[in-house]
Simulated scan of single mutants.
Amino acid sequence: MARQLARGMGSFFKPCDCSKPSRCPHAYTIRFRDARGKQREETGYRTQDAAVERLTELYADRKKTSPSVAEARRELGQQTIEEYAQTWLPRQRKITEYSTAKTLASHFRAQINPVIGSRKLNSVTPTVVEDFLDHLEAEGVGRGHQLNVYRALSALLRDAFEKGATADNPLRGVQKPEYAPQRVAIPDAEYIARAIQVADYKLALEIVLMVGCGLRNGEARAVNVNNIVADDVYRVTEQVHSSTHQLAKLKHRKEGEFREVPLPRTVKNTIERFAKEHGTTEDGYLLRGPKGPFSEPNERYRVLKLFTALPPAEGVGMYSFRHFFASNALGNGIPITDVAEWMGHTSIQVTYRTYRHLMPGSITKAAMVLDEQLRAVV
Protein backbone atom coordinates (compact mmCIF):
# COMPACT_ATOMS: atom_id res chain seq x y z
CA MET A 1 0.00 0.00 0.00
CA ALA A 2 1.16 3.53 -0.80
CA ARG A 3 1.68 5.63 2.33
CA GLN A 4 0.33 9.18 1.98
CA LEU A 5 2.29 12.22 3.14
CA ALA A 6 1.02 15.74 3.66
CA ARG A 7 -1.72 16.71 1.24
CA GLY A 8 -0.33 17.59 -2.18
CA MET A 9 3.11 16.08 -1.64
CA GLY A 10 2.38 12.69 -3.16
CA SER A 11 3.23 9.24 -1.88
CA PHE A 12 5.96 6.60 -1.81
CA PHE A 13 5.68 2.83 -1.95
CA LYS A 14 7.36 -0.38 -3.07
CA PRO A 15 5.73 -1.98 -6.13
CA CYS A 16 6.57 -5.51 -5.01
CA ASP A 17 4.71 -8.43 -3.44
CA CYS A 18 7.08 -8.93 -0.51
CA SER A 19 5.39 -9.73 2.80
CA LYS A 20 7.44 -7.08 4.61
CA PRO A 21 8.11 -4.27 2.11
CA SER A 22 9.89 -2.08 4.65
CA ARG A 23 12.59 -4.74 5.03
CA CYS A 24 12.89 -6.07 1.49
CA PRO A 25 15.78 -4.90 -0.77
CA HIS A 26 13.57 -3.44 -3.51
CA ALA A 27 13.71 0.28 -4.25
CA TYR A 28 10.93 2.75 -3.41
CA THR A 29 8.81 4.44 -6.06
CA ILE A 30 7.38 7.92 -5.57
CA ARG A 31 4.12 9.18 -7.08
CA PHE A 32 3.42 12.91 -7.39
CA ARG A 33 1.88 15.60 -9.59
CA ASP A 34 4.11 17.92 -11.60
CA ALA A 35 3.64 21.68 -12.11
CA ARG A 36 1.09 20.97 -14.86
CA GLY A 37 -0.95 18.76 -12.56
CA LYS A 38 -0.06 15.50 -14.31
CA GLN A 39 0.62 12.44 -12.21
CA ARG A 40 4.11 11.03 -12.53
CA GLU A 41 6.24 8.33 -10.96
CA GLU A 42 9.95 7.92 -10.30
CA THR A 43 11.69 4.87 -8.91
CA GLY A 44 15.10 3.91 -7.59
CA TYR A 45 15.06 5.25 -4.01
CA ARG A 46 16.78 2.90 -1.57
CA THR A 47 15.27 4.26 1.66
CA GLN A 48 12.10 5.95 2.86
CA ASP A 49 14.11 9.01 3.85
CA ALA A 50 15.44 9.34 0.29
CA ALA A 51 11.93 9.04 -1.15
CA VAL A 52 10.50 11.62 1.27
CA GLU A 53 13.38 14.02 0.63
CA ARG A 54 12.76 13.78 -3.12
CA LEU A 55 9.02 14.40 -2.69
CA THR A 56 9.77 17.41 -0.51
CA GLU A 57 12.08 18.89 -3.15
CA LEU A 58 9.54 18.29 -5.92
CA TYR A 59 6.79 19.92 -3.85
CA ALA A 60 8.92 23.01 -3.14
CA ASP A 61 9.98 23.28 -6.78
CA ARG A 62 6.38 22.96 -7.98
CA LYS A 63 5.35 25.86 -5.79
CA LYS A 64 7.83 28.25 -7.40
CA THR A 65 7.79 27.03 -11.01
CA SER A 66 5.44 28.47 -13.66
CA PRO A 67 3.46 26.00 -15.79
CA SER A 68 5.32 27.06 -18.99
CA VAL A 69 8.74 26.46 -17.44
CA ALA A 70 7.53 23.21 -15.97
CA GLU A 71 6.30 22.09 -19.40
CA ALA A 72 9.67 22.87 -21.01
CA ARG A 73 11.47 20.92 -18.30
CA ARG A 74 9.01 18.06 -18.59
CA GLU A 75 9.59 17.78 -22.35
CA LEU A 76 13.34 17.81 -21.80
CA GLY A 77 13.05 15.19 -19.10
CA GLN A 78 11.05 12.95 -21.44
CA GLN A 79 14.05 12.66 -23.74
CA THR A 80 16.11 9.52 -23.40
CA ILE A 81 19.82 9.63 -22.64
CA GLU A 82 20.56 8.65 -26.23
CA GLU A 83 18.27 11.36 -27.64
CA TYR A 84 19.75 14.03 -25.38
CA ALA A 85 23.29 12.93 -26.32
CA GLN A 86 22.54 13.56 -30.00
CA THR A 87 22.17 17.29 -29.33
CA TRP A 88 24.55 17.48 -26.38
CA LEU A 89 27.62 15.93 -28.02
CA PRO A 90 27.88 18.46 -30.90
CA ARG A 91 27.92 21.24 -28.28
CA GLN A 92 31.06 19.82 -26.67
CA ARG A 93 33.37 21.93 -28.83
CA LYS A 94 36.19 22.11 -26.34
CA ILE A 95 38.50 19.16 -25.98
CA THR A 96 38.30 17.98 -22.39
CA GLU A 97 41.25 17.13 -20.20
CA TYR A 98 40.63 13.43 -20.68
CA SER A 99 38.96 12.91 -24.04
CA THR A 100 38.59 14.17 -27.55
CA ALA A 101 35.09 14.79 -28.90
CA LYS A 102 35.33 11.56 -30.93
CA THR A 103 36.35 9.56 -27.87
CA LEU A 104 33.47 11.08 -25.90
CA ALA A 105 31.00 10.00 -28.58
CA SER A 106 32.49 6.51 -28.67
CA HIS A 107 31.77 6.04 -24.94
CA PHE A 108 28.07 6.65 -25.59
CA ARG A 109 28.00 4.49 -28.70
CA ALA A 110 29.85 1.52 -27.21
CA GLN A 111 29.08 1.49 -23.48
CA ILE A 112 26.35 3.92 -22.40
CA ASN A 113 23.61 3.76 -25.05
CA PRO A 114 23.40 -0.06 -25.28
CA VAL A 115 22.76 -0.29 -21.53
CA ILE A 116 20.84 2.84 -20.42
CA GLY A 117 20.47 4.89 -23.60
CA SER A 118 16.71 4.25 -23.74
CA ARG A 119 16.11 5.48 -20.19
CA LYS A 120 14.31 8.82 -19.89
CA LEU A 121 16.31 11.57 -18.22
CA ASN A 122 13.66 12.26 -15.61
CA SER A 123 13.91 8.65 -14.44
CA VAL A 124 17.67 8.66 -13.89
CA THR A 125 18.52 8.48 -10.20
CA PRO A 126 21.81 7.88 -8.38
CA THR A 127 20.77 4.23 -8.12
CA VAL A 128 20.50 3.99 -11.91
CA VAL A 129 24.01 5.40 -12.29
CA GLU A 130 25.41 3.08 -9.64
CA ASP A 131 23.75 0.07 -11.28
CA PHE A 132 25.32 1.11 -14.59
CA LEU A 133 28.76 1.24 -12.97
CA ASP A 134 28.12 -2.20 -11.47
CA HIS A 135 27.31 -3.43 -14.99
CA LEU A 136 30.64 -2.14 -16.31
CA GLU A 137 32.43 -3.89 -13.47
CA ALA A 138 30.57 -7.14 -14.10
CA GLU A 139 31.45 -6.96 -17.80
CA GLY A 140 35.13 -6.80 -16.91
CA VAL A 141 35.67 -3.25 -18.15
CA GLY A 142 38.98 -1.95 -16.80
CA ARG A 143 38.88 0.63 -14.03
CA GLY A 144 40.63 3.23 -16.13
CA HIS A 145 38.07 2.84 -18.92
CA GLN A 146 35.23 2.76 -16.39
CA LEU A 147 36.38 6.13 -15.12
CA ASN A 148 36.43 7.63 -18.62
CA VAL A 149 32.93 6.30 -19.39
CA TYR A 150 31.64 7.66 -16.08
CA ARG A 151 33.10 11.08 -16.85
CA ALA A 152 31.26 11.13 -20.17
CA LEU A 153 27.94 10.07 -18.63
CA SER A 154 28.25 12.39 -15.63
CA ALA A 155 29.00 15.38 -17.88
CA LEU A 156 25.78 14.79 -19.83
CA LEU A 157 23.68 14.20 -16.71
CA ARG A 158 25.09 17.30 -15.06
CA ASP A 159 24.14 19.37 -18.09
CA ALA A 160 20.62 17.90 -18.13
CA PHE A 161 20.21 18.58 -14.42
CA GLU A 162 21.30 22.21 -14.80
CA LYS A 163 18.72 22.66 -17.57
CA GLY A 164 15.95 21.22 -15.41
CA ALA A 165 15.47 17.88 -17.15
CA THR A 166 15.95 16.19 -13.79
CA ALA A 167 14.69 17.84 -10.64
CA ASP A 168 17.19 16.02 -8.46
CA ASN A 169 20.91 15.61 -9.07
CA PRO A 170 21.28 12.09 -10.51
CA LEU A 171 24.93 12.02 -9.43
CA ARG A 172 24.32 12.80 -5.78
CA GLY A 173 26.28 10.42 -3.60
CA VAL A 174 27.59 8.37 -6.53
CA GLN A 175 31.20 7.30 -6.07
CA LYS A 176 33.15 7.40 -9.30
CA PRO A 177 35.32 4.38 -10.17
CA GLU A 178 38.72 4.49 -8.55
CA TYR A 179 41.56 3.83 -10.96
CA ALA A 180 44.51 2.17 -9.30
CA PRO A 181 47.03 1.12 -11.93
CA GLN A 182 48.53 -2.30 -11.48
CA ARG A 183 52.24 -2.63 -10.97
CA VAL A 184 53.73 -2.21 -14.40
CA ALA A 185 55.78 -4.90 -16.10
CA ILE A 186 59.18 -3.64 -17.24
CA PRO A 187 61.27 -5.69 -19.69
CA ASP A 188 65.02 -5.88 -19.19
CA ALA A 189 67.64 -4.76 -21.71
CA GLU A 190 68.12 -8.26 -23.09
CA TYR A 191 64.39 -8.62 -23.80
CA ILE A 192 64.29 -5.21 -25.54
CA ALA A 193 67.31 -6.06 -27.69
CA ARG A 194 65.57 -9.27 -28.77
CA ALA A 195 62.33 -7.38 -29.52
CA ILE A 196 64.14 -4.90 -31.77
CA GLN A 197 65.84 -7.80 -33.53
CA VAL A 198 62.68 -9.81 -34.33
CA ALA A 199 60.28 -6.90 -35.00
CA ASP A 200 59.73 -5.66 -38.55
CA TYR A 201 61.79 -2.58 -39.32
CA LYS A 202 58.94 -0.10 -38.73
CA LEU A 203 57.89 -1.59 -35.41
CA ALA A 204 61.55 -1.77 -34.37
CA LEU A 205 61.83 2.00 -34.80
CA GLU A 206 58.72 2.51 -32.66
CA ILE A 207 60.28 0.40 -29.89
CA VAL A 208 63.53 2.39 -29.99
CA LEU A 209 61.59 5.67 -29.64
CA MET A 210 59.55 4.29 -26.74
CA VAL A 211 62.49 2.93 -24.73
CA GLY A 212 64.80 5.82 -25.58
CA CYS A 213 62.50 8.87 -25.47
CA GLY A 214 59.46 7.63 -23.50
CA LEU A 215 57.05 8.19 -26.39
CA ARG A 216 53.60 6.64 -26.51
CA ASN A 217 52.85 4.22 -29.36
CA GLY A 218 50.97 6.80 -31.39
CA GLU A 219 53.65 9.44 -30.82
CA ALA A 220 56.33 7.05 -32.03
CA ARG A 221 54.33 6.34 -35.19
CA ALA A 222 54.31 10.08 -35.96
CA VAL A 223 58.12 10.35 -35.76
CA ASN A 224 59.46 13.14 -37.96
CA VAL A 225 63.09 14.04 -38.71
CA ASN A 226 62.15 17.73 -38.57
CA ASN A 227 61.32 17.29 -34.87
CA ILE A 228 64.99 16.84 -34.00
CA VAL A 229 65.47 20.39 -32.74
CA ALA A 230 68.91 19.79 -31.21
CA ASP A 231 71.46 16.99 -31.11
CA ASP A 232 69.97 15.80 -27.82
CA VAL A 233 66.37 17.09 -27.99
CA TYR A 234 63.32 15.69 -29.81
CA ARG A 235 60.12 17.76 -29.98
CA VAL A 236 56.91 15.72 -29.73
CA THR A 237 54.21 17.60 -31.63
CA GLU A 238 51.56 15.05 -32.64
CA GLN A 239 50.49 11.44 -32.63
CA VAL A 240 48.78 8.92 -34.87
CA HIS A 241 45.39 8.58 -33.16
CA SER A 242 44.59 5.02 -32.06
CA SER A 243 40.99 5.20 -33.34
CA THR A 244 41.13 7.35 -36.47
CA HIS A 245 44.72 6.45 -37.45
CA GLN A 246 45.12 10.04 -38.55
CA LEU A 247 47.54 12.66 -37.24
CA ALA A 248 46.12 14.30 -34.13
CA LYS A 249 47.09 16.56 -31.24
CA LEU A 250 48.97 15.12 -28.28
CA LYS A 251 47.13 13.44 -25.43
CA HIS A 252 46.33 15.88 -22.60
CA ARG A 253 47.47 18.80 -24.79
CA LYS A 254 45.66 21.46 -26.78
CA GLU A 255 46.04 21.81 -30.52
CA GLY A 256 49.51 23.12 -31.35
CA GLU A 257 51.05 22.34 -27.95
CA PHE A 258 54.15 20.16 -27.74
CA ARG A 259 56.67 18.78 -25.29
CA GLU A 260 60.41 18.20 -25.63
CA VAL A 261 62.15 15.01 -24.54
CA PRO A 262 65.76 13.85 -24.25
CA LEU A 263 67.16 12.39 -27.48
CA PRO A 264 69.89 9.87 -26.66
CA ARG A 265 72.64 9.60 -29.26
CA THR A 266 71.69 5.97 -29.98
CA VAL A 267 68.12 6.98 -30.80
CA LYS A 268 69.23 9.87 -33.00
CA ASN A 269 71.53 7.53 -34.90
CA THR A 270 68.68 5.05 -35.36
CA ILE A 271 66.37 7.74 -36.74
CA GLU A 272 69.00 9.00 -39.16
CA ARG A 273 69.89 5.49 -40.30
CA PHE A 274 66.22 4.67 -40.89
CA ALA A 275 65.75 7.86 -42.94
CA LYS A 276 68.79 7.04 -45.05
CA GLU A 277 67.74 3.45 -45.72
CA HIS A 278 63.99 3.89 -46.18
CA GLY A 279 63.53 7.58 -46.93
CA THR A 280 61.01 10.09 -45.59
CA THR A 281 57.90 11.84 -46.86
CA GLU A 282 58.27 15.36 -48.20
CA ASP A 283 57.20 16.57 -44.76
CA GLY A 284 59.82 14.50 -42.94
CA TYR A 285 57.69 11.63 -41.61
CA LEU A 286 59.40 8.27 -41.34
CA LEU A 287 56.52 5.92 -40.57
CA ARG A 288 53.43 7.80 -41.61
CA GLY A 289 52.59 9.85 -44.69
CA PRO A 290 49.56 12.12 -45.04
CA LYS A 291 47.28 9.15 -45.88
CA GLY A 292 48.69 6.10 -44.13
CA PRO A 293 49.83 3.40 -43.88
CA PHE A 294 48.41 2.55 -40.45
CA SER A 295 45.20 0.55 -39.93
CA GLU A 296 43.91 -1.20 -36.83
CA PRO A 297 44.05 -4.78 -38.22
CA ASN A 298 47.57 -4.16 -39.55
CA GLU A 299 48.75 -2.81 -36.21
CA ARG A 300 47.27 -5.70 -34.24
CA TYR A 301 48.89 -8.21 -36.59
CA ARG A 302 52.35 -6.60 -36.34
CA VAL A 303 52.22 -6.48 -32.54
CA LEU A 304 50.80 -10.01 -32.22
CA LYS A 305 53.51 -11.35 -34.52
CA LEU A 306 56.17 -9.62 -32.40
CA PHE A 307 55.09 -11.04 -29.07
CA THR A 308 54.49 -14.48 -30.53
CA ALA A 309 58.15 -14.55 -31.54
CA LEU A 310 59.37 -13.26 -28.15
CA PRO A 311 59.79 -15.35 -24.98
CA PRO A 312 56.66 -15.28 -22.77
CA ALA A 313 56.82 -12.47 -20.20
CA GLU A 314 53.89 -11.86 -17.88
CA GLY A 315 52.33 -8.41 -18.25
CA VAL A 316 54.72 -7.23 -20.95
CA GLY A 317 53.16 -5.47 -23.95
CA MET A 318 53.98 -2.59 -26.25
CA TYR A 319 53.46 -0.05 -23.46
CA SER A 320 56.10 -1.85 -21.41
CA PHE A 321 58.77 -0.37 -23.68
CA ARG A 322 57.68 3.10 -22.56
CA HIS A 323 57.81 1.90 -18.95
CA PHE A 324 61.44 0.95 -19.54
CA PHE A 325 62.20 4.62 -20.28
CA ALA A 326 60.78 5.66 -16.90
CA SER A 327 62.63 2.86 -15.13
CA ASN A 328 65.91 3.79 -16.79
CA ALA A 329 65.52 7.48 -15.97
CA LEU A 330 64.37 7.11 -12.36
CA GLY A 331 66.88 4.35 -11.66
CA ASN A 332 69.68 6.69 -12.67
CA GLY A 333 68.61 9.52 -10.38
CA ILE A 334 66.75 11.74 -12.85
CA PRO A 335 64.10 13.75 -10.92
CA ILE A 336 60.57 12.42 -11.17
CA THR A 337 59.33 15.93 -12.06
CA ASP A 338 61.40 15.81 -15.25
CA VAL A 339 60.29 12.26 -16.06
CA ALA A 340 56.61 13.25 -15.62
CA GLU A 341 57.04 16.17 -18.04
CA TRP A 342 58.88 14.11 -20.66
CA MET A 343 56.28 11.33 -20.57
CA GLY A 344 53.42 13.80 -20.98
CA HIS A 345 51.57 12.86 -17.79
CA THR A 346 48.79 15.16 -16.61
CA SER A 347 50.44 15.48 -13.20
CA ILE A 348 53.37 14.16 -11.21
CA GLN A 349 50.88 12.12 -9.14
CA VAL A 350 50.26 9.91 -12.19
CA THR A 351 53.97 9.26 -12.53
CA TYR A 352 54.40 8.62 -8.83
CA ARG A 353 51.46 6.19 -8.58
CA THR A 354 52.73 4.23 -11.57
CA TYR A 355 56.43 4.09 -10.78
CA ARG A 356 56.77 4.57 -7.01
CA HIS A 357 57.99 0.97 -6.66
CA LEU A 358 61.06 1.97 -8.67
CA MET A 359 62.09 4.28 -5.83
CA PRO A 360 61.85 1.98 -2.79
CA GLY A 361 64.76 3.54 -0.94
CA SER A 362 63.99 7.21 -1.53
CA ILE A 363 62.82 7.98 2.02
CA THR A 364 65.67 6.08 3.65
CA LYS A 365 68.19 7.72 1.33
CA ALA A 366 66.73 11.17 2.09
CA ALA A 367 67.01 10.58 5.83
CA MET A 368 70.67 9.64 5.49
CA VAL A 369 71.50 12.65 3.31
CA LEU A 370 69.71 15.09 5.62
CA ASP A 371 71.42 13.60 8.64
CA GLU A 372 74.87 14.53 7.28
CA GLN A 373 74.22 18.25 7.81
CA LEU A 374 72.11 17.86 10.95
CA ARG A 375 74.94 16.21 12.91
CA ALA A 376 76.80 19.50 13.08
CA VAL A 377 73.87 21.49 14.48
CA VAL A 378 71.74 19.10 16.55
Rank of each mutant, 00 (worst) to 15 (best):
K365Q: 10
H145T: 10
F132H: 11
A155M: 08
K38N: 08
T65I: 05
A185S: 13
R33S: 06
N122R: 09
S11T: 12
A199C: 09
F274D: 04
R3Q: 15
S99T: 03
E178A: 13
A309Q: 11
G214H: 02
A72N: 04
D134N: 07
A275G: 05
G10K: 10
F258T: 07
I271W: 11
K268H: 08
V211R: 03
P170W: 06
A50G: 06
G289V: 03
P177Q: 08
V350M: 15
R259Q: 02
A70S: 13
E82D: 15
I228A: 02
E341R: 03
A167W: 09
L133H: 07
R36K: 10
I112H: 03
L358Q: 14
Y179G: 02
F13I: 06
G218P: 00
G8F: 10
N332I: 04
Q175S: 15
L310N: 06
R91P: 00
L58W: 10
G37T: 04
S22C: 04
A70Y: 03
N332C: 07
I271S: 05
V225F: 08
P21C: 12
S106K: 02
A367H: 12
L171T: 09
H107G: 00
R119Y: 12
Q146S: 09
P297F: 04
D200K: 01
T125C: 07
I363C: 01
R40Q: 15
T280H: 04
Y59R: 12
S106C: 02
G142T: 12
F324K: 06
G37K: 03
Y45K: 08
A376S: 12
R158S: 14
P126E: 12
E130A: 15
L133N: 07
A195I: 07
D131N: 12
K38P: 01
S68Y: 03
K254C: 01
A165L: 07
P67Y: 00
K38D: 11
S320R: 03
L247H: 05
R273F: 13
S320V: 05
